[in-house]
Design a protein around this nucleic acid. Sequence first.
DNA 1: ACATCCTGTTACCGCGGGTAACACCATGGT
DNA 2: ACCATGGTGTTACCCGCGGTAACAGGATGT
Lengths: 212, 212
Amino acid sequence: MAETDLAGRVDDRREQLLAAADRVVRREGSAAAMNVIAAEAGITKPILYRHFGDKGGLYRALAERHINDLLLRLRAALTTRGGLRARTRATVDAYLASIEEEPQVYRFLVERAAVEEPGVRGQVEGFVRRFGEELAAGIRSEPELAAGPAAVDPGRAVVWAHAIAGMVQAAGDWWLDHPEVPRQSVVDELTALLWDGFSGTATDASTRQGLR
Amino acid sequence: MAETDLAGRVDDRREQLLAAADRVVRREGSAAAMNVIAAEAGITKPILYRHFGDKGGLYRALAERHINDLLLRLRAALTTRGGLRARTRATVDAYLASIEEEPQVYRFLVERAAVEEPGVRGQVEGFVRRFGEELAAGIRSEPELAAGPAAVDPGRAVVWAHAIAGMVQAAGDWWLDHPEVPRQSVVDELTALLWDGFSGTATDASTRQGLR
DNA sequence: ACATCCTGTTACCGCGGGTAACACCATGGT
DNA sequence: ACCATGGTGTTACCCGCGGTAACAGGATGT
């Protein structure tokens, strides 16, 4: 009981500090200094360091929270009722909607993922990587892809998953700089590409002169 | 004549400094300090700053050179003789081969692209973005996609281009951490995804129960 | 009363980006 | 011969930021 109280208080504190960091990051971008974050929380640096160890720790905690929020939305979209194509479309749309709602947070995630710890290999687990792992799980448990005699190869699943994660991320990143393009159309193009690939367009368009 | 001499000498100097920076970056990663780069070139900091303005300038110049090398290889692959599928495959392979040969350089490009200037919007022109622009030009001038009655929409072309750029980049990034996977198979998977998309697998695998 | 543990502070270190000020040496015009 | 110009090069410094040491209450339990 006392333990839960204590843990509760500590977690409240962490949450409160993270909230301050979040405000600063939204306001000033991912280059926010620990100084400023501490001031925003009404305290000074050492307290931040006591709670999060170092700047990486704070940023990791903050990123973790936002990534989890995002993954929740993506999971929800991945498991909606409907055919695979509809779920694909819903997932892409959920991703783009998320980054549209909070572009600052998205920027933070992407920029942090690249820098984090340039030396540590295999431990980085950046943002897109997490997204990819999630998709891999989704693909593996996808009835329309994982079942049947020509089931998708496990190796294929993981490569595809990370490829798709990067594809959606890059397209979304580009889209944030081109707000004149409606989200719907980006979603449509991406879904079309994921579903039919080039062959859907190429074979429609030109004569089948020795393709494949 | 005197001008060309002068320009030639200045460019030599720049090249020489960039070469030093390149060595350091390959040796120590993208977190290399200006101090160290200057020492590697046998000089001190202010000279670097005179030539490149600030650290961003140096890194941008260095990235520019490597990006150009990479784009040359990609352009070559994009324009080889053969069907669209073969060229798609060649381009993906060229990209993966490049990052396999010099992963340090690749890391530098990716990490720099994300950090560069977090404040400047629309000017960033990161590495993947450049790759995407290149692909967009390739797609637009692609006879099997751009010609015919169902020619690929210009908007579709640009979205696809950046999507594909991100897809290949992310898959390559993942692959660098999984060297046990042969390059061939990554290329195969990516080409398959780009060419047929899910429908190639899904419709083969499971019954067509209400897809599309 | 005292030990403990949390919260909080001020003041500092070290590193790295960036700059000021100055010194040297070639060129070349008058 | 003289000095302006413009490049190369230096030392020495500033400052911002990540990170830490040391110290000062103020609760709480025994």
